[in-house]
Write a protein that binds this DNA or RNA. Structure first.
Lengths: 138, 138
DNA sequence: ATAAACCCTGTACCATAGTACGGGGTCAAG
DNA sequence: CTTGACCCCGTACTATGGTACAGGGTTTAT
């Protein structure tokens, strides 16, 4: 099947070529095979993986975390329960993020609604949202 | 009412003192009044604002975006419709994030479920998730 | 067969978001 | 009245996530 040069891959996903090399260096993309003149030949999967990475990044995951997410599916079968555990940790993290985003969304919604008419918005308890974590004494 | 020294503020919210100064420098926290010897005296609101900032950051907002969010509520009444518009843009962004997080969550959930028993997980279409944006030709 | 477009490596540089540190003043308790 | 904890400023350093060359080969279309 078809393979991608680095330029094709970068263009397909909409990232810089240098970024692809950077990801390869840092282990986010596995080192692809090379042709006789040393050109990288990325498999289809690299597109998927790279796209996943960029999307996950926009969701607030660091490259380290993305590396963890990606590694979950590659662990040998023996470590299956370990994978399950890690997946569940990630799920919990994600649930928390979703919850907080919803809260923030509501606050913005309220702000937006209030702003419809000419009422001044001097007092909008917009900030007071997202108050959960790190509340009091350590 | 009570005011906070920089150390108290930092401790209360669980950040480094230097971070507070950094935020002041970059306009995320308004410059607080000083006492006679030049010590910062942060009002209660600084706690709220700082906490908001740290939380929003965990949700994947950059400091620049957080500055935008925070500024929404401070714009003079005249710009009310502008605020509404900006708020709605943010809401849309947040909705997208929530949607993608849910998708990712489902994928992880499936992975986790599959990992319960001794079945090998060689083929888990976990990556293929989050495929929406930046699909084809520009 | 030659120019344009593409790829290689290595190194340097950039922005963002802090963190650390030196040198010095301030305040509170013993 | 001094010692330790706290604060000031300025500057420098760090990690992360890229970007940008320079100097050199390769491929492709004319």
């Amino acid at each position: 099947m078809k393979s991608y040069t680095i330029g094709e891959l970068a263009k397909e996903v909409g990232v810089n070529m240098e970024t692809v090399r950077y990801y390869e260096r840092t282990g986010l993309l596995p080192k692809p095979p090379r042709n006789d003149s040393g050109y990288r030949q990325f498999p289809e999967e690299a597109v998927v993986r790279l796209r996943f990475t960029k999307n996950a990044q926009r969701l607030g995951f660091s490259l380290r975390e993305i590396r963890e997410l990606l590694s979950l599916r590659l662990i040998p079968d023996s470590a299956c329960l370990d994978v399950k555990e890690k997946a569940e940790v990630k799920i919990a993290e994600i649930d928390k993020k979703i919850g907080e985003l919803k809260t923030l969304r509501e606050a913005l919604k309220e702000l937006s609604a209030r702003c419809t008419r000419v009422t001044p918005i001097n007092e909008c308890h917009f900030l007071e949202v997202l108050q959960d974590s790190r509340g009091g004494e350590p």
